[in-house]
Simulated scan of single mutants.
Amino acid sequence: MARKTKAEAAATREALLDAAEEMFIQHGVARTSLEQIARHAGMTRGAVYWHFKNKADLFHAMLQRVRLPFQDLVEALDDPELAKKPLEAIRLACISGFEHLERPRYRRVHAILIHHCEVFSDIDPLAMQNEMVEESCGALRDYFHCAARLGHLRDDIPPELAAQLLQSLLGGLFHDWLRNYERFSIYEEGTRLVKAQLSLMRASPSE
């Protein structure tokens, strides 16, 4: 019985987060109240406060469902040989990230963060975006440093510059796609661009 109660509580929490996504994308974060979210989910405001302290807590939980830490993407590939092929690890992790982003929930939540959220109470969308970029860029730097130590990276491209170049490509691609996601597939375009970028950075066999 206890297990059922826990499962029901988890289902209620997920339903509230689903409702929040739908309301935020329609009305924006600042103009959506917790009561509106509760009503949209067919619940009371008390149900919201049972699971979340406030709207900022709910918002962070919504983001957490679609977070894509770069290191997690690499580890999910479950290939120990990638430790010897850091540039290939970067390529495959990026492709995995693109696959996730094309799922409706991932696209919708990132659209909320980028286009439907103002600074409001304890919610600072710019700070959240900066944190995500720094997390990604830091992981990329680690992998490019590994590539440099193995002699896989061109001598004239320091690991820090390589990480900055790829992060700029990813950020530009992501924002272009999010503005009009029906115009192109981020998976197809991203796969092509990342492959080309890494090829330009890769050391030639004679180096």
Rank of each mutant, 00 (worst) to 15 (best):
K6V: 07
E8M: 14
R13M: 10
E14M: 11
E14F: 04
L17K: 01
D18Q: 11
A19I: 09
A19N: 04
T32Y: 04
T32E: 02
S33R: 01
Q36D: 11
Q36F: 04
I37L: 11
I37E: 03
H40M: 06
A41C: 10
T44H: 14
R45I: 12
R45N: 13
R45S: 11
G46T: 09
Y49T: 04
F52T: 03
F52L: 03
K53D: 15
N54M: 07
D57I: 04
L58P: 07
F59N: 00
A61H: 15
M62W: 02
Q64L: 15
V66F: 02
R67V: 13
L68C: 10
V74Q: 04
V74C: 08
E75R: 15
D78Q: 12
D78S: 13
D78I: 03
D79R: 02
E81K: 12
K85I: 05
P86G: 01
P86F: 05
P86C: 01
L87W: 05
E88A: 10
E88S: 10
R91V: 00
A93Y: 05
A93H: 03
C94S: 10
I95F: 09
S96K: 14
S96H: 08
G97S: 06
E99S: 06
L101E: 05
P104I: 05
R105V: 05
R107F: 07
V109Q: 05
V109R: 01
A111V: 06
I114Y: 12
H115R: 09
F120L: 01
S121H: 14
D122W: 11
I123C: 05
